[in-house]
Amino acid sequence: MPPSESLTMTSFIVRSDHLIGNKVDNELVMIDLDSDNYYGLDSIATDIWERIASPIRVSELCENLLENYAVEKDQCQQELLALLGQMNEKGILNVVNEVDE
């Protein structure tokens, strides 16, 4: 599945619903039921995956993470966009960008 939208701090994102997953220790392992690909998320990525079960703006997600992790804002934004970018490329994320009026 090709990425539908480019991803920025103002994008709205929500995780795809064609995956099932379970935790092994504190990491989430998932199978994509459409492609049969498997994904493993480390504990922080697992936390992020849980926070994107409902649509959320990337900037708001970043603010939430800053409250919970000892990380600088710049680094948080950069790493979050990189992770979400990978998920978008794999087709396991839905991205909606607002159209400028």
Binding site: D36, Y38, G40
Partner: peptide
């Protein structure tokens, strides 16, 4: 091993895994 590494070992060594789907 921990977490997804444990899962990967089981997946990689499943016999006939290409037929499951």
């Amino acid at each position: 091993q921990n977490g997804s590494d444990k899962f990967n070992i089981l997946l990689n060594h499943t016999m006939g895994k290409f037929s499951f789907r």
